[in-house]
């Protein structure tokens, strides 16, 4: 108990900062380290953005969007077909993944959240969300490319849909389960059927959050390249049908990045700039839509 008779303590402590005190010094070093970590962590982003703007913007003109990719030693050209291809495949992916994902989310989030079915669906969706994206390509290759005998926009779109599906399902589930029980009770109390409660109350209320999830999944899919590599492959021509090899921005960047021609490398940078802008656009859109309205 010695040293605890603090009332008789006559020694007066100096409470002033002691800059060379070990604790203070170590604390400063720690703060400095964290600050350094944060700054170094931010450098790659600014470096990427700087490169995109300086290297990519030189080709940012009308031709970029309207011309086809150039062959070997040719100059000029654009990435028009790749932009169209990316958008077409995203549309196909949405066509499959949005209805499945949203309705799956309604099932696990609102209709029967605690049922065994819902638990199974949730589990599978979580497992799928952890699949490496290239496996979606492997699966669709085995299923569709081998089946149809050709690489196609359809196959690419479905590969993207497999990536988007768990994201949409899990965010929709989250959104739907956030709808307050009292709102649903009010609708049930007025004699709504379960189906009416879902279509008239739950879905409209949860819609902004559901759309946020969809936009985020599109942003993710737009930048994906691994699943397209051997499902959609690539094409130097405009898209004419859904059952033929189709160009996409990400594969164009991949193909052109390794080429020894400066023209193609410039186009790869320009394509990256466009791709990043598309991805950011969907990210921003998700934020705007997700803002609560009421």
């Amino acid at each position: 108990m010695a040293g605890m008779q603090n009332l008789e303590q006559t020694q007066v402590f100096n409470l002033a900062r002691k800059p060379y005190n070990r604790d203070t010094l170590v604390n400063y070093i720690f703060t400095g380290t964290l600050f350094g970590v944060a700054v170094i962590g931010a450098i790659p982003l600014f470096s990427v953005l700087y490169m995109l703007i300086t290297r990519g913007s030189s080709r940012l003109n009308w031709d970029l969007f309207t011309q086809l990719p150039p062959a070997g030693f040719m100059s000029g050209g654009g990435i028009g077909n790749a932009i169209v291809g990316t958008l077409v495949m995203i549309a196909i992916a949405c066509l499959f993944s949005v209805p499945l994902g949203v309705m799956g989310g309604v099932l696990t989030g609102s209709l029967a959240p605690k049922s065994r079915t819902a638990r199974t669906v949730r589990f599978i969706a979580k497992v799928m969300s952890g699949f490496p994206s290239i496996l979606a390509g492997v699966f669709v290759y085995a299923l569709l490319v081998v089946g149809l005998g050709t690489y196609s926009a359809l196959a690419g779109g479905i590969a993207l849909a497999i990536l988007m599906l768990p994201i949409i399902l899990l965010t929709s589930e989250q959104a739907v389960s956030m709808v307050p029980q009292r709102m649903k009770d009010a609708a049930f109390g007025m004699g709504c059927t379960h189906g009416q409660v879902v279509t008239k109350v739950v879905l409209p209320t949860a819609m902004p959050a559901i759309l946020t999830g969809i936009m985020l999944s599109i942003a993710r899919a737009a930048g994906e390249s691994a699943p397209l590599l051997f499902t959609a492959l690539f094409s130097n021509f405009w898209i004419r049908g859904l059952i033929e090899p189709t160009a996409s921005l990400s594969i164009l960047i991949y193909n052109f990045s390794g080429m020894p021609f400066p023209n193609q490398i410039e186009l790869a940078w320009a394509g990256s700039l466009v791709l990043v802008l598309i991805v950011f656009a969907f990210n921003v859109l998700s934020r705007i839509i997700g803002r609560p309205r009421y």
Partner: peptide, 15 residues
């Protein structure tokens, strides 16, 4: 506190 203004700039709040 102990004859020092603990809100003075020179004071270490941790101490």
């Amino acid at each position: 506190f102990m004859g020092q203004d603990i809100y003075a700039p020179s004071i270490d709040p941790v101490l």
